[in-house]
Design a protein around this nucleic acid. Sequence first.
DNA 1: CGCCCGCTTGACACGAATCAAAAAGCGTGG
DNA 2: CCACGCTTTTTGATTCGTGTCAAGCGGGCG
Lengths: 226, 226
Amino acid sequence: MLQMLAPHGATPPFPNLSAPLAEVRISQVTGPLLPPRTMVFREGSAGTPQYRVVDGCVATAQTLSDGRRQIIDLIGPGRLIGLGFGDRNRCSAETLGFTRLEAVSETMAQGERDQAFAEMLARSQALVMLLGRKTAPERVASALLDLAGQFGRPARDKRRGAITFHLYPTRGDLADWLGLTLETVSRCLSRLKKAGLIDIRQGDLVTLLDPQKLSGIAAGDRPLSP
Amino acid sequence: MLQMLAPHGATPPFPNLSAPLAEVRISQVTGPLLPPRTMVFREGSAGTPQYRVVDGCVATAQTLSDGRRQIIDLIGPGRLIGLGFGDRNRCSAETLGFTRLEAVSETMAQGERDQAFAEMLARSQALVMLLGRKTAPERVASALLDLAGQFGRPARDKRRGAITFHLYPTRGDLADWLGLTLETVSRCLSRLKKAGLIDIRQGDLVTLLDPQKLSGIAAGDRPLSP
DNA sequence: CGCCCGCTTGACACGAATCAAAAAGCGTGG
DNA sequence: CCACGCTTTTTGATTCGTGTCAAGCGGGCG
């Protein structure tokens, strides 16, 4: 039921919750800190555990038989994973950084469920538009804005509207999310840096210096200089 | 509220239902036959009318500011449109052939709603995988199988497993669904024809001659000869 | 310190887009 | 019934954006 696999198949992170009927007030139990690259559940596995991300980042993904991977969503604090996956998970879920999860009771209020479903659907459909019709720079700009919304510090930069956030996904993760290759993502980030729209320090601390212009690029209204 | 536009801006198809409070047992009223290319609702419009497709085909789509269009889903008999679009529609919906709709009451049983949501999510996520990681021939093969599932006649061909269905979307519609161009879709269909996997008669009657092999191509397990 | 892993950058290849034109449908009307 | 004009589809030639392959670079961690 609770099937979590540490990076290389170690012990489950919530061992005490594996016992049957241990779900009393389970929704308020806060789990331990999961290390990066922990499989929360695997594509095709039975059962649909549901969690809320308290802190950190989780990626849900599907994989084709020949290994091509597509990240379906990147999920930050406050959002749910495992909703609507049916009795067999259609996605695997993996932590991208140190992450704290919180089990969520299966019975939610109808309004809450609908809200959560509608949000997931909206995000999925936005990703469809991105993958179907946007160019590589547009995709990367869109991704950065999405991540800023999910992980952006409320404390903003001195510059007008600048936002800083911790970049959980690697270039490879971004590529698998955006339907690109690692190299193309890297090139687009370099171009955005050169254009003065973003800044990346210490490898994973991103600052959007001009979210306005970035939105223009993301929407296809404004080209990005080569 | 009910805002339907005939192909070139004629009278609304459900004129009698436009009156306020006329929604008594509305869920069991079957509307008239809508002609092809009827806008059922527009992206960004207020209100979220919900319908069930009784017969025919509806496409939900989003459009970028510069006109790039992405079809989010093609919807056949039995399925719902308008669910989870919030108070402002995120999609426009348009009929692709003569189509009969049935209004659906806003209050569905929780299980029914969840079921519908889960199906839409699953389809959207499958489209994400298709757009992010599949090649053009794989996309076209996947699309044909999907359409066969939605529109395939229960009466199957004499050949083992062959399925025939009416192809509602044009090449352009398929392109906008699959993140390709009209020409690429046409070329892929030609290659599938030449490979003996499908047959197209009268322009819009498609027969899948070997769904098995087609599935192999759709999943990326088997290449398609040039 | 030095290995290792993730990232960047460059050269080239390839798949799909674009541009262009011919062919095939299809309804209309003679 | 066939000729006509329009739309959609098919096919071809070429271009362009990403993918692929291959080195370097750099920072973190043992």
